[in-house]
Design a protein around this nucleic acid. Structure first.
Length: 434
RNA sequence: GGGCUCGUGGUGUAGAGGCCUAACACGCCUCCCUGUCACGGAGGAGAUCGCCGGUUCAAAUCCGGUCGGGCCCGCCA
């Protein structure tokens, strides 16, 4: 039976078998140390027998090994335990040296990201890289656990769709058996439809954006968390849900993975259960007062303002997550609900200097929705929209929700500098492989 | 789409008109080494300095073009 690295201590004094990848060799003459990597970590193996060492000659990092040996407690060994008197079997020999180092942290400097992604297949075996994606996996788990506990149902909606799901973002067009189809830029319409079935739904899935953006925060395939909740009493219910979700996930992450985050140079977490809320107009004013720059004519917050308000909230409110509320009506999508005085019932959640979510209440009244669609130049009878409108005709309660960039959250949770670093195989305007 | 930048062994960097027959670290190969954990030591292989053209007695270095990256803005999440 195969024993994992993390379970070795429980088998001390026993003869066991481990399997894994050759991660590191250190030859000291009469004594050889190797590290074997499995899904749970590294095992140190001590080899004294010359014949066994000889089996590893020419074997490069990545060779798959099966090793029998005696589990021995040893204070000098990392983890306090190592394998002695071993028999080595090379299951998959690797003779080519890795194209990128896997036992020392890789360069994440902007100018070196191209190499990082070009060599991703092997580079992800680097323990530091692996850690990033282990944390991402945990974030997804915490999100799911939080939402299940709130009685949400996880759904999957089509990614091949008939038309643009919402205004704004550019879409990828493709040939669908002779018809034109697009890759879904958001599950927006479907998740609202599903409120009529489950009340509370969420989806974690890719969304495709064809924007010609080349920045540290854009990719053309993003992983989105989409949440939609029915029977809300007001916009505040949705804000609170998002706030509780982020607070819960982030405090859990920092609580359970503090060491890993520290080793990745993640910043300390500063969060309050109640995130500060400032209206867009207030932020423009505060920013102007602080910097002298007038952004009041901007529809949205500029990237600089997003950074500024996050730093402000961290300093003054002790919280690095902050809501920008009362977004202007001009930024409103047809499915959003109007607010007071030219605003929409919509807010952005900013965290560590970047927008990670937009959280609006929806227009759930059939007549109003159709009106808003027409005003936005969207045909309610078009094949991409008619089924959506039908759901409203047959009764949708007051509802709201949010879309939430998993990549950006992971990036910011760890303190990386580019979303792409938080994506296994990022897709951007000039990368389609690996 | 606009602006600004950068391309040097497999990887990360130094060199900024002649000291370059291109240096260093990691990795790789050979040898030595019984407690390493970024092991150490000795030796070695590996780059026509992205590509094309120009200036010059002389170009990795200056200029133009081209290809490929990166960052910012716009757009967007």
């Amino acid at each position: 039976m195969r024993i994992l690295s993390r379970d070795l201590l429980a088998h001390k004094g026993e003869q066991v078998t481990i399997e894994g990848w050759l991660h590191k060799k250190r030859l000291l003459g009469g004594l050889t140390f190797i590290n074997v990597r499995d899904r749970s970590g590294l095992t140190q193996v001590v080899i004294k027998n010359k014949d066994e060492v000889e089996k590893l000659r020419g074997m490069q990092i990545g060779s798959v090994l099966k090793i029998d040996g005696m589990v021995t407690e040893e204070p000098r060994a990392p983890g306090g335990v190592e394998l002695h008197d071993v028999t080595v079997a090379v299951e998959v020999p690797v003779t080519e040296e890795p194209p990128i180092e896997i036992d020392k942290p890789l360069s994440h400097k902007p100018e070196n990201l191209d190499t990082l992604f070009e060599q991703r297949v092997i580079g992800l075996r680097n323990l530091q890289e692996t850690k990033i994606f282990k944390i991402r996996s945990e974030i997804l788990r915490y999100i799911r656990e939080f939402l299940y506990a709130q009685d949400f149902t996880e759904i999957n909606t089509p990614k091949l769709v008939a038309g643009a799901a919402e205004g704004g973002a550019e879409v990828f067009k493709l040939d669908y058996f002779g018809k034109e189809a697009t890759l879904a830029q958001s599950p927006q319409l479907y998740k609202q439809i599903m409120v009529g079935v489950f009340e509370r739904v969420f989806e974690i899935a890719p969304a495709f954006r064809a924007e010609l953006s080349a920045t540290t925060r854009h990719v053309s395939e993003v992983t989105m968390l989409d949440v939609e909740m029915g029977f809300i009493q007001g916009h505040g219910d949705v804000l609170n849900l998002l706030q509780d979700l982020v607070y819960n996930v982030m405090t859990r992450l920092y609580g359970e993975h503090g060491d890993e985050l520290k080793s990745l140079n993640a910043p300390e977490l500063a969060l309050k259960p109640d995130f500060p809320r400032y209206s867009m107009a207030e932020i423009h004013q505060m920013y102007q007062k602080a910097t002298g720059k007038d952004m009041s004519q901007e529809i949205d917050l500029t990237p600089d303002e997003e950074k500024w308000i996050c730093e402000y909230a961290k300093k003054n409110d002790g919280c690095e997550a902050v809501f920008a509320t009362d977004l202007p009506e001009s930024k409103m999508k047809f499915y959003h609900m109007k607010g007071e005085n030219g605003t929409a019932r919509s807010a952005d959640l900013l965290f560590r200097g970047i927008e990670i979510s937009t959280v609006p209440q929806r227009e759930h009244r059939h007549e109003n929705l159709v009106e808003q669609m027409k005003a936005a130049g969207v045909d309610p009878d078009a094949p991409g929209f008619a089924p959506y409108v039908t759901a409203f005709k047959h009764g949708l309660p007051a509802h709201g929700g949010f879309g939430f960039g998993i990549d950006r959250l992971t990036e910011k949770a760890i303190g990386l500098g580019n979303v792409k670093e938080a994506i296994l195989f990022p897709r951007d305007i000039n990368r389609l492989a690996p």
